[in-house]
Amino acid sequence: MSTSSPSTLSPLPRLLVEPIVRAALLEDLGRAGDITTDAIVPADARLEGVIAARQAGVVAGTDAARIAFELIDPAVSVTVERGEGARIAPGDVVIRLSGPARAILTAERVALNLLCRMSGVATATASLVEAARPHGKARIVCTRKTTPGLRALEKHAVRAGGGSNHRFGLDDAVLIKDNHVAVAGGIVPAIERARANTGHLVKIEVEVDTLDQLAEALSVGADAVLLDNMTPDQLARAVAMIDGRAIAEASGRITRETVGAVAASGVDLISCGWITHSAAIIDLGLDAR
């Protein structure tokens, strides 16, 4: 399973990650804090432990996990043994912890929730990247189908899994979908209005379902076309029509079993929503030692 190299994946700024982790901790702490741990564990007790893999996968979310422990108590020592994009097998140690027992136990669930979730996204992405690679140049990209509040972390996890990011939100690129086309009265007027009302650095992509719609999009110079729910044969014909004039993106019903044939069509990008909205977690757990 090939992934991004941990050394080449830039971490997200703490300023971006910390509010997400802080909100998760506040949700968990509620109105009275960790009443179980505070009642049972002496204030001066210390704990050494590891977060280890229970199953194989690709790591993501280590920064969020580290911040969870540090926000509860900066005295917790957190050492990341396997960073973003690293492959893990059952038993592998991902993070080593040492410090006040109360803080470690209180932050444990939030740290694991984020680490398991993001590692699941990275692992799902890596599975598609691996399946697509022998068949063409296509990059696997995510969508805006992300967990509310976790988009930055999930998109980072996609990169950890060897994938790339589509737009981050509604404000960084134009993506004209079928309902936009319906309201605008056609593909051509939709693209023309978008170009007239956005800055010169903003890319314009349009979703098409047929080769006739593709011809319309190309006639007015779309920067990218989203080829939605096309068969591999239709995709290959679309790529030939595009002939390098626009970025070709395939989308719709992409699985590990189908992604190879889609990649073989010659598209530039393959977008997939399930790698963020439906990826299964990777099971990791905290073991005291």
Rank of each mutant, 00 (worst) to 15 (best):
residue 231 T to H: 05
residue 196 A to C: 01
residue 33 G to D: 07
residue 103 A to L: 02
residue 119 S to P: 12
residue 193 R to E: 02
residue 264 A to I: 03
residue 192 E to I: 07
residue 231 T to C: 09
residue 37 T to W: 08
residue 137 K to L: 13
residue 201 L to T: 14
residue 122 A to K: 12
residue 244 G to L: 09
residue 256 R to Q: 07
residue 27 E to V: 09
residue 266 G to D: 03
residue 221 G to F: 01
residue 215 A to H: 06
residue 3 T to K: 10
residue 59 V to Y: 08
residue 85 G to F: 00
residue 107 A to N: 03
residue 255 T to P: 05
residue 19 P to W: 03
residue 148 P to E: 07
residue 53 A to Y: 01
residue 102 R to M: 01
residue 214 L to G: 05
residue 237 R to S: 14
residue 8 T to A: 14
residue 179 N to W: 10
residue 87 R to F: 00
residue 191 I to D: 02
residue 162 G to E: 07
residue 269 L to I: 09
residue 257 E to C: 03
residue 281 I to D: 09
residue 279 A to V: 06
residue 105 L to Q: 02
residue 114 L to K: 05
residue 282 I to Y: 01
residue 162 G to R: 08
residue 79 T to H: 11
residue 82 R to K: 15
residue 129 V to E: 03
residue 11 P to K: 14
residue 7 S to N: 13
residue 112 L to W: 02
residue 17 V to R: 05
residue 8 T to D: 11
residue 111 A to Y: 09
residue 256 R to H: 01
residue 184 A to C: 11
residue 72 I to H: 10
residue 208 V to I: 02
residue 225 V to L: 11
residue 145 K to C: 13
residue 75 A to H: 14
residue 60 A to S: 15
residue 114 L to H: 02
residue 150 L to M: 15
residue 114 L to V: 08
residue 24 A to Y: 02
residue 174 V to Q: 03
residue 237 R to D: 15
residue 236 A to W: 01
residue 118 M to T: 01
residue 227 L to T: 04
residue 70 E to G: 09
residue 280 A to I: 05
